[in-house]
């Protein structure tokens, strides 16, 4: 049984259909990349998996437990499903350490000391220990995004959702963030990432899904998708990306 099982979901905002019978599965320790044109629903799909958005039809299961529809404790769900946003969304009024320890203290009920110990261990691992007492606005974009990843990891999540986490970064800062993701992938963290970094998606993923028209238009191993896409719109999408020298 797959770790995340998205079954035949549909969602629309008024007349605008976002998902149209979309199905997708992610196995444990698997890294799945979602690629596709803007507005194809990559971000929305991630937000649905962690309950920030509701779906209209279908269901999503994690470890066999249904996490959509009525009766689901979304707070409990979100404890185990971490998400990192394109815009970092750090809390500007708290230090880096405050950002990372807030949820472990308030949600997991760790003691302050235990939460800080865990936070410092993670920050050190990602080269951010000397930034623990700084406020987010003193950090570069890349550092902020690394802190955001640490903040999600501090909850010890079962799966990490990464929503275009390098799209807001200056080009020279992208690699420091991607290195972390690469590390986590090697460690066996289950991840689902929406991305425009095709080269990275190809390198790190075990599966690539091309989203288009509200469903998974084509999916497969990265080499297959990038080198010999079977379907027309996948080919057109990748051709445009190549023409823009972004691959």
């Amino acid at each position: 049984m797959a770790f995340i099982e998205i079954r035949d979901i549909s969602k629309s905002y008024g007349d605008l259909s976002v998902f149209n019978h979309l199905s997708l599965s992610v196995d444990e320790h698997e890294v799945v990349s979602l690629i596709g044109p803007s507005g194809s629903g990559k971000s929305t799909l991630l937000r649905c998996i962690n309950g920030l958005e509701a779906i209209d039809h279908g269901e999503i299961r994690v470890h066999g437990d249904r996490i959509t529809g009525p009766g689901v404790d979304v707070n409990a769900l979100r404890r185990d499903i971490g998400i990192v946003f394109q815009g970092y969304n750090l809390f500007p009024h708290m230090t880096v350490l405050g950002n990372v320890t807030l949820a472990p203290i308030k949600v997991l009920r760790l003691s302050k000391a235990a939460a800080e110990e865990r936070a410092m261990a993670l920050l050190s691992r990602f080269g951010l220990a000397n930034k623990a007492r700084e406020y987010p606005d003193r950090l570069s974009g890349g550092q902020q995004q690394r802190v955001a990843i640490v903040r999600a990891l501090a909850m010890d999540p079962l799966v990490l959702l990464l929503d275009e986490i390098t799209s807001a970064l200056d080009p020279e800062l992208v690699s420091e963030v991607l290195n972390i993701v690469r590390d986590l992938a090697e460690e066996g963290m289950t991840m689902l990432l929406a991305t425009h970094e095709m080269g990275f998606a190809r390198e790190v993923s075990s599966k690539v899904c091309f989203l288009c028209d509200g469903s998974v238009y084509e999916e497969g191993p990265p080499d297959k998708i990038f080198d010999e896409p079977a379907r027309e719109r996948t080919r057109a999408f990748l051709r445009n990306i190549r023409d823009a020298k972004r691959i």
């Binding site: 962690n50 920030l52 979304v74 409990a76 979100r78 998400i83 969304n89 809390f91 807030l102 308030k106």
Partner: peptide, 9 residues
């Protein structure tokens, strides 16, 4: 969104 995604009520 960031706070709720961390499980805060």
């Amino acid at each position: 969104a960031a706070a709720r995604s961390l499980g805060l009520s």
